[in-house]
């Protein structure tokens, strides 16, 4: 699989390590009510969809950036990739 890195162009997926569902970027608030149950869901449960999946890839053997890659899990077709740091900044604003 080739991942279209927003800064570096098409890169072999072998340069990356895989973490999983991009929902992991939304960590629950540890001070909120019911934080324990929320963290249990956050750590252990996954949507695991058959189809379009947004997921975190780390460019370990490259520029060491985290990407959010959109990929179809039924075909392995990659539909896009964004810098996770940009998404995080966008979400904070």
């Amino acid at each position: 699989m080739l991942i279209p890195h927003p800064l570096l162009g098409l890169r072999d997926s072998q340069e990356f390590t895989y973490l999983g569902d991009a929902a992991l970027m939304q960590r629950p608030d540890p001070a909120a009510d019911g934080a324990e149950a929320a963290f249990c869901d956050y750590v252990f449960l996954r949507d695991n969809p058959a189809g379009v999946h947004r997921e975190l890839w780390f460019h370990e053997q490259g520029d060491r950036s985290w990407l959010v890659v959109t990929r179809d899990t039924t075909t392995h077709e990659i539909l896009g990739a964004e810098l996770a740091s940009n998404l995080k900044l966008g979400a904070a604003q």
């Binding site: 999983g20 449960l45 996954r46």
Partner: peptide, 8 residues
């Protein structure tokens, strides 16, 4: 309607 502690 279930989410599982599983990835395929």
């Amino acid at each position: 309607g279930m989410r599982l502690p599983i990835e395929s």
